[in-house]
Design a protein around this nucleic acid. Structure first.
Length: 716
DNA sequence: CTAGGGTTAG
């Protein structure tokens, strides 16, 4: 700019002078600079020609490294140049129009770009490419594909740029059929050898979960460049094979290829060991790359090494929203809301505008009911900042409200939404289930289908867990049918939920069948079958599954031990139970929670080891709750321990628990020893307290689908 | 051509 000014003042510069100036701004950071030059040109009464506009637009477009820069003023810049073009009659040049189209697209103004395209007097492959690429880059993947078909119909032959711009859209939307068709078309057009085309297609297959195809393409590449390797490392990472990603990285080093910053980012996103990648980053000298350090911070944060993430953030000059969000969500996961808020304030202090993702990171950290007020405050922040228009934020709020059983608020947020994406339906359905209102969830499911929204595995898993609560075996079976008919992925969540539903509704054999149909069960699936066997009193099967799980190299968690311990309790296996409790705490370093303790107390009590049971309770690190005391009371019934029983019942009475189960236990205890007066007294007390004493009724299969569809409405 | 933050679930 300054240079231009100095030169301008000395003598009238020529057009070619401006041209070379504009060329020098190609790749600069600021599109304003090129536009300023252009304004000066107009002021000096030099007449711009087609080449001038082409150079200007190229400089402007190249300064916008990423798409959808869209701000208010951005569109104006585009249309100002546009009007100059029309005024000077330069708008009949295809290449100038294409440059303008590209600029519009990079500004995120797809509508303007489309209008320009429709009005262009003639078009060529390059203008079609710019249009398709623009739609694809701005996230309009289906439109990009539609345009591609239109381009072919109009008789244009795609070139390598066409393929390379279009194929990522197929990958991002997992359109493998369209992707492979384009692959075929590319080969037919003689573009199959092109390394860029090949890399793009390799990545597309990986995103569509077809790793075999990616590997095939990669192997047949005669010349593998750094991008090819990065693509493969990313491909393994995206599909959960972090070991293979690391292996390919090492193989790449062996072939003495220099890694690039993207290699590091791909490795990091492959969930590699952060420390190892960190070493490579330093070794390769990438520690000044913003995106590399940001990814590293994210990985440390994701792995729970929040201290390291923080340290890196504090010592690096990079202060960006992504790093801060990663650290925030790490604290959210730990439930440390104080630090979450601290970082949120830091975002504002740094004059950065928190976005939807930052907002969600805060919301999912609000777990403690004591922090619910903060949650409501953030709802207010969402309204005030305008972030509430983002359905991600609404969704985060819906799950937060359902977490605290504030279903009314969740529902009203839901009803206000114009477009309801699948995830929001899922959030509310699971909200209803968690709030103990599974019939509402079922009703919502019905409405969802009426709305034309297709459920996925998560929807089904949530509904199935609702079936467990009500013993709705029939509905569970209907859902299972749905899963089979619609090819819902049975692995992981849905399979686990099915097993859980069947075992809890008394159909162990179906649960076993589902379990056997799962190829590579995950830990949760193993847990559900173990708990199922325990629930049905088949301890030896539970133990077999437990050892098989270990053989598969899986690490048992708290839920696993809940199942194993309850198997021991049911089988009266005191020695095994005590041993597993020790393994859990010592070998796997898992803190026993109230449920584990209740199970242990039950185990000792049922075996008549009351002294040991009491000793266990006294040694507990957490305050025993009604479940723990109740387990002991139940043992008293078996061993006719009236005195201890009475003590425990008093304790339970003062714990003021809503569960009146202890009245029933106490009444049974008196009945066993023949104290019928006391039985009557306890029964009377129970009725007084509001209990109806009708526990012990089987609820399984009481409802039919018709019942659900006809009788249960959302507004009760 | 390749890449980075978040939500729903057993």
């Amino acid at each position: 700019m300054n240079l231009a000014c100095t030169l301008c003042s000395s003598k009238t510069p020529s057009l070619s002078f401006f041209h070379s100036l504009l060329t020098s701004y190609t790749g600069s950071q600021n599109s304003k600079l090129a536009l300023d030059i252009f304004r000066q040109l107009l002021e000096t009464n030099v007449n711009p020609v087609d080449l001038t506009f082409s150079l200007l637009l190229k400089a402007c477009a190249s300064s916008l490294s990423s798409y959808a820069y869209a701000s208010f003023s951005a569109g104006i810049e585009g249309s100002q140049v546009h009007s100059q073009l029309v005024k000077r009659g330069i708008n009949q040049f295809v290449y100038v129009n294409t440059a303008l189209l590209d600029f519009y697209m990079k500004l995120g103004c797809t509508t303007d770009a489309r209008k320009l395209f429709e009005n262009m007097p003639c078009r060529d492959v390059v203008s079609w490419n710019a249009l398709i690429c623009g739609y694809s880059q701005n996230g309009y993947h289906f439109d990009a594909l539609d345009l591609f078909v239109q381009m072919l119909r109009d008789g244009f032959r795609p070139n390598q740029t066409t393929i390379v711009s279009l194929v990522p859209s197929c990958g991002l939307r997992e359109l493998i059929l369209q992707g492979s068709s384009i692959h075929g078309l590319g080969i037919k057009a003689g573009l199959g050898w092109d390394p860029q085309v090949k890399n793009a297609i390799t990545s597309m297959y990986a995103k569509c979960d077809d790793l075999k195809a990616s590997e095939l393409l990669f192997e047949e590449m005669s010349e593998k460049n750094i991008v090819s390797w990065n693509t493969m490392i990313g491909a393994y990472g995206q599909n959960g094979f972090s070991d293979k990603a690391m292996f390919f990285f090492k193989k790449m080093l062996e072939e003495s290829l220099q890694p690039s910053p993207v290699t590091m980012i791909s490795l990091l996103s492959a969930n590699a060991v952060p420390e190892i990648v960190h070493c490579y980053i330093i070794k390769c000298g990438f520690n000044s790359y913003v995106s590399v350090i940001t990814s590293l911070i994210c990985l440390y944060a994701k792995k729970g090494c929040t201290d390291m993430a923080e340290l890196l953030y504090k010592t690096s000059p990079v202060k960006n929203l992504i790093s801060l969000t990663a650290i925030m969500s790490s604290y959210s996961e730990k439930g440390d809301i104080k630090l979450v808020i601290e970082y949120f304030m830091q975002i504002q202090q740094l004059d950065m505008k928190p976005d939807a993702v930052a907002m969600i990171s805060v919301l999912c950290g609000i777990i403690d009911p004591a922090h619910f007020v903060i949650g409501r405050a953030f709802h207010g922040y969402g309204l005030q900042s305008g972030l509430i228009v983002d359905c991600l934020v609404v969704n985060g709020l819906i799950s937060m409200y359902s977490r605290f059983d504030e279903i009314e608020d969740a529902l009203s947020l839901f009803l206000e939404m114009n477009e309801k994406p699948l995830i929001t339906w899922n959030s509310l359905i699971s909200g209803f289930v968690q709030a103990g209102k599974p019939s509402h969830a079922m009703e919502l499911f019905r409405r969802m289908k009426m709305y034309g929204q297709k459920p996925d595995g998560i929807t089904i898993a949530s509904l199935l867990s609702g079936c467990c609560q009500l013993g709705y075996l029939r509905i569970g079976e209907v859902l299972h049918n749905y899963v089979v008919r619609n090819n819902v992925k049975v692995e992981d969540f849905t399979g686990t939920a099915l097993i859980d539903m069947y075992t809890k509704c008394g159909r162990l054999e179906y649960a076993e069948r589902v379990f056997k149909s799962i190829n590579d069960p995950c830990l949760a699936t193993w847990n559900s079958i173990i708990s199922g066997y325990s629930l049905h009193g088949i301890e030896h099967q539970a133990f077999i599954c437990y050892s098989e799980l270990l053989e598969h190299g899986l690490k048992p968690d708290r839920i696993t031990f809940l199942g194993v311990l309850s198997a021991c309790t049911h089988g009266g296996l005191v020695l095994e139970g005590t041993e597993h409790f020790l393994i859990m705490t010592k070998e796997y370093d898992l803190m026993p929670d109230l449920q584990h303790c209740a199970s242990m107390v039950g185990l000792l009590g049922r075996a008549g080891l009351f002294k040991e049971a009491l000793e266990f309770i006294n040694n507990m690190e957490i305050e025993p709750d009604s479940a723990v005391w109740g387990a002991l009371l139940s043992a008293c019934c078996i061993h006719q321990q009236v005195k201890l029983g009475e003590c425990l019942a008093k304790k339970l009475f003062f714990l003021n628990n809503k569960n009146g189960g202890f009245y029933v236990l106490m009444s049974n205890l008196y009945a066993i020893v023949g104290r019928w007066d006391d039985v009557a007294r306890v029964r009377y007390m129970m009725i007084e307290s509001g209990g109806d004493g009708c526990s012990g009724v089987s609820v399984i299969q009481v409802a039919s689908v018709e019942d659900i569809n006809n009788n249960v409405l959302l507004d009760e």
